[in-house]
Simulated scan of single mutants.
Amino acid sequence: MSPAATIATDATDPAQVVAFQGAPGAYSHLACREALPDFAPLPCATFEDAFAAVREGRAACGLIPIENSTAGRVADIHHLLPEGGLYITAEHFLRVRHQLLAPKAATVKSVKRVFSHVQALSQCRRIIKDMGIEPVVSSDTAGSAREVAERNSPEEAAIASSIAGELYGLQVLRADIEDNHTNTTRFIRLERQRRDPDPQTGNSLTAIMFRVRSVPAALYKALGGFATNGVNVVKLESYLSDGFRVAEFYAEIEGHPAHRNVDLALQELEYFSRSLKVLGVFTAHPFRSEA
């Protein structure tokens, strides 16, 4: 196994462990290596397991995908955030680069079938069509790479991350084969304690979850404080809970709660809401200004 693909073990200091959802070699594993190269990644079967690993102290933090530029928001994450007992402390953007991986004996001409998650296959339609190979849907990208490596057939390939190729000993037949070269996944870093950045440094984002009161124009009134106090809302998503009777909202705003205009806007939001929780304050990733 290459050093880049090292996985956390029971002997690893939890203070140097980052939990992620997925199998070794998943894109979340690659995101961990990019965002926290000095941490040992801990693969978890589900998002709930990743949250629990951080909450129980088996990992210092978790790196969880929250949205993708092509596929949209990641299901279940916003439902886990309010009750997960963790706080957002940073964000990371991963450019999704799909690799066509195959056993060492395989060639571009020998490959007849390619295995991967349905989204990865759909994101690489052009090369699959050009090569005239059969796409086969599997449960995930990393698992596809592992299974192709185990069968060791020159007729099979997988679409997965570069780290999956390193981990399972596969060669890259074609690199960066995705149709859309701007495909990007946004991850959030979760920890047990809030770690608000210095309010004087700028570029702060505040993540909140709130429920509005069941009265006419409640959302309009609740959000009015952001407009009157000059606070920019950069993200707003709604969710139905409690048997489709209650509207819950996840929002991200520019600024720090220590800034007077943000504080006033949050006070007004709280007045018109049934509940309000700050999920974290963090520094905006440089990718936002580069995109």
Score class of each variant (00 low, 15 high):
residue 135 P to Q: 05
residue 129 K to F: 00
residue 104 K to C: 00
residue 5 A to K: 08
residue 4 A to W: 09
residue 171 Q to K: 15
residue 269 L to G: 02
residue 262 V to G: 07
residue 281 V to T: 15
residue 155 E to A: 14
residue 46 T to S: 11
residue 161 S to G: 09
residue 40 A to D: 12
residue 91 E to T: 15
residue 38 D to R: 07
residue 264 L to W: 08
residue 253 I to N: 06
residue 275 S to I: 01
residue 217 A to K: 12
residue 134 E to Y: 06
residue 240 L to Y: 04
residue 115 F to T: 00
residue 288 R to D: 00
residue 161 S to A: 13
residue 171 Q to V: 01
residue 226 F to K: 02
residue 140 D to A: 03
residue 129 K to E: 05
residue 177 I to P: 03
residue 76 D to L: 13
residue 155 E to H: 11
residue 219 L to W: 01
residue 81 L to C: 13
residue 189 R to E: 06
residue 101 L to Y: 03
residue 219 L to T: 07
residue 155 E to G: 00
residue 183 N to F: 10
residue 180 N to A: 14
residue 14 P to R: 10
residue 123 Q to G: 09
residue 168 Y to K: 09
residue 158 A to R: 02
residue 6 T to A: 05
residue 259 H to M: 14
residue 51 F to N: 01
residue 111 V to Y: 05
residue 144 S to Y: 03
residue 149 A to S: 15
residue 250 Y to C: 02
residue 260 R to I: 04
residue 14 P to Q: 04
residue 129 K to M: 02
residue 117 H to Y: 08
residue 247 A to E: 10
residue 117 H to V: 00
residue 248 E to L: 14
residue 220 Y to N: 11
residue 21 Q to K: 06
residue 230 G to W: 05
residue 176 D to C: 06
residue 144 S to E: 10
residue 200 Q to K: 11
residue 233 V to D: 04
residue 176 D to L: 03
residue 9 T to Q: 09
residue 79 H to T: 12
residue 207 A to Y: 05
residue 248 E to V: 04
residue 281 V to F: 07
residue 176 D to M: 03
residue 88 I to Q: 03
residue 77 I to V: 15
residue 107 T to A: 04
residue 201 T to S: 13
residue 278 V to C: 12
residue 23 A to F: 14
residue 247 A to M: 03
residue 1 M to H: 15
residue 207 A to P: 09
residue 143 G to S: 13
residue 169 G to V: 02
residue 132 G to P: 09
residue 31 A to F: 10
residue 227 A to R: 08
residue 77 I to A: 04
residue 84 G to A: 12
residue 87 Y to C: 14
residue 145 A to H: 11
residue 283 T to K: 12
residue 51 F to S: 07
residue 60 A to D: 03
residue 46 T to M: 13
residue 94 L to Q: 09
residue 238 S to E: 05
residue 263 D to I: 04
residue 213 R to E: 15
residue 236 L to S: 10
residue 288 R to E: 03
residue 177 I to S: 03
residue 255 G to H: 05
residue 130 D to H: 06
residue 216 P to W: 04
residue 218 A to F: 02
residue 98 H to W: 10
residue 28 S to P: 05
residue 228 T to G: 00
residue 201 T to R: 13
residue 250 Y to S: 02
residue 141 T to Q: 14
residue 167 L to C: 04
residue 137 V to S: 15
residue 234 V to T: 15
residue 282 F to K: 03
residue 199 P to Y: 04
residue 33 R to E: 05
residue 90 A to N: 09
residue 260 R to Q: 10
residue 290 E to T: 10
residue 242 D to V: 00
residue 70 T to N: 14
residue 19 A to L: 08
residue 108 V to I: 15
residue 120 A to Q: 00
residue 25 G to D: 06
residue 290 E to Y: 10
residue 87 Y to K: 02
residue 103 P to H: 12
residue 63 L to G: 01
residue 186 R to V: 09
residue 257 P to S: 07
residue 4 A to Q: 15
residue 212 V to L: 11
residue 72 G to S: 05
residue 274 R to D: 06
residue 72 G to N: 06
residue 15 A to R: 11
residue 219 L to S: 12
residue 99 Q to W: 10
residue 226 F to Q: 02
residue 197 P to M: 06
residue 166 E to M: 08
residue 85 G to K: 02
residue 157 A to E: 00
residue 169 G to F: 04
residue 268 E to Y: 00
residue 175 A to I: 02
residue 137 V to C: 07
residue 99 Q to T: 00
residue 170 L to G: 07
